[in-house]
């Protein structure tokens, strides 16, 4: 590892620390939120953003120490495109299996039958 100086040092360090904190918060949420649908919120948002921050830090680090290096951006784009899709599929699976929900969940659907996946 090459030590950086000045603004680059601060920028890379703060991106790495903020990203790691968000990813940690996402995993804490996955471990301690009460039911499946609530747990789904933590990794899709926090972990995606946290890993995105770490990858941005990596882009700045390699751009400063070596030559211009943007290809880590592909991972960030890929994660941000796929996180909603996997969340949607898992939510569908959770609703289909009729998992236990916390008792104060309000079901405000007008016609729940219109969504059921059982044909």
């Amino acid at each position: 590892m090459v030590e950086l100086h000045g603004w680059a040092d601060w920028l890379v360090s703060s991106l790495l620390i903020i990203g790691a904190l968000f990813a940690l918060i996402g995993s804490v949420g996955l471990a301690r939120l009460p039911d499946f649908m609530a747990r789904l919120h933590a990794p899709t948002k926090s972990t995606t953003l946290g890993v995105g921050g770490v990858i941005l830090g990596s882009i700045v680090y390699f751009s400063v120490t070596a030559s211009f290096s943007w290809h880590e951006l592909l991972i960030t784009i890929f994660l941000f495109l796929t996180a909603p899709i996997s969340a949607h599929l898992l939510a569908k699976a959770g609703l289909h299996l009729e998992l236990r929900r916390v008792e104060n969940t309000r079901d405000l659907r007008a016609q729940p039958k219109q969504y059921s996946d059982k044909d």
């Binding site: 649908m37 919120h41 899709t44 995606t48 969340a87 939510a91 569908k92 996946d117």
Partner: peptide
């Protein structure tokens, strides 16, 4: 799905 506290389920 990506914004405040909401996820599209179906």
């Amino acid at each position: 799905s990506l914004t405040p506290g909401t996820i599209t389920a179906e």
